[in-house]
């Protein structure tokens, strides 16, 4: 499993390695990073999942980027040149500046890999995949309602430019937007649309809806979508079917939120701290994966 994304650290170089947890921080290649919104929340949730399953920790490719695109370009370019030798079974792309030409080159490089990795995208990498016209070749996207409106809008090049009517109705019209996203080539093979209802979609068909427990405060907490994507990545690495990986991840995220008893001011790290207990108590019954 390889997770690639930027972190909000000015001038942090490109780093690559297995992630370890040390206290409240994550350590990669000698760098200590906090579990905050974005790539590191995703990595933290993936690590919590692999720990529970007894799998090796995720490999991560990170670079500092505070919006200039410098770190994003390093990540894209490194993956383009090295993806065959890295040979991940699952490749998850996360916070990166959406650079269409580099995403197209990366997709071309990934298609040459044998076996081809499971391709997962969220955040800016998902925006890039849609804008580059390669969304249907990805295995799973994890958009929220505003992002499914973006995937459904064939003209939009970024969620800031979606049609006003699509945004205004997005939260009530997710199933319809899912259909549009598939019809317009904006969707991956599988979708997990995160929201008040989590929709799991395979090849355009909604195969599961998860509504409980309902914890409205979770929407406020930066990183609670990233955690879902991190768990999906880890469960895909454990060779679960993607729709099952998505369903379990959505359930676990909600259960972790409920256990944390959050307010809108809660941090994502407090949610992630609950994942080990959630897995211990529920994963066996949810999935048949029963660890000691």
């Amino acid at each position: 499993m390889l997770i690639a994304g930027t972190v909000p650290v000015t001038d942090m170089p490109l780093i690559f390695g297995r992630v370890e947890k040390e206290g409240k921080k994550l350590r990669v290649d000698g760098h200590y990073l906090p579990c905050t919104q974005g790539t590191m929340a995703m990595v933290s949730a993936a690590l919590a999942t692999t720990c529970h399953l007894g799998l090796e920790p995720p490999r991560v490719l990170l670079a500092g980027d505070i919006g200039t695109g410098k770190g994003s370009r390093l990540i894209y370019q490194y993956l383009i040149e090295h993806i065959e030798e890295l040979a991940p079974r699952v490749l998850a792309l996360h916070y990166c500046l959406p650079i269409v030409t580099l995403m197209q080159k990366l997709y071309t490089a990934v298609e040459k890999c044998r076996p081809r990795p499971v391709l997962i995208a969220d955040a800016g990498s998902m925006y890039a995949a849609k804008a580059a016209g390669v969304a249907p070749h990805f295995d799973i996207f994890t958009p929220d309602p505003s992002e499914i409106a973006f995937l459904a809008d064939p003209e939009a090049v970024h969620p800031a430019y979606i049609s006003r009517h699509l945004f205004e109705d997005a939260f009530a019209r997710v199933p319809e937007l899912i259909k549009h996203a598939y019809a317009n080539g904006g969707a991956a093979k599988c979708l997990l649309v995160k929201g008040a209802v989590d929709y799991i979609v395979k090849d355009g068909v909604i195969v599961d809806e998860i509504k409980e427990p309902d914890v409205p405060q979770m929407e406020c907490i930066g990183g609670t979508g990233d955690t879902i994507t991190g768990m999906v990545t880890a469960f895909a690495y454990a060779e679960l079917e993607l729709e099952q990986a998505a369903s379990i991840s959505a359930k676990a995220n909600r259960a972790a939120g409920q256990r944390a008893n959050p307010t809108p001011a809660t941090s994502v790290a407090e949610i992630i701290d609950q994942l080990p207990v959630v897995f211990r108590e529920n994963l066996c019954s949810w999935s048949g994966i029963c660890t000691r």
Partner: peptide
Amino acid sequence: IVNISGGGCPDIPYLYT
């Protein structure tokens, strides 16, 4: 400001901090 959520561009985690 107690939380910022959403977005996918690399300046958002920075602006969060």
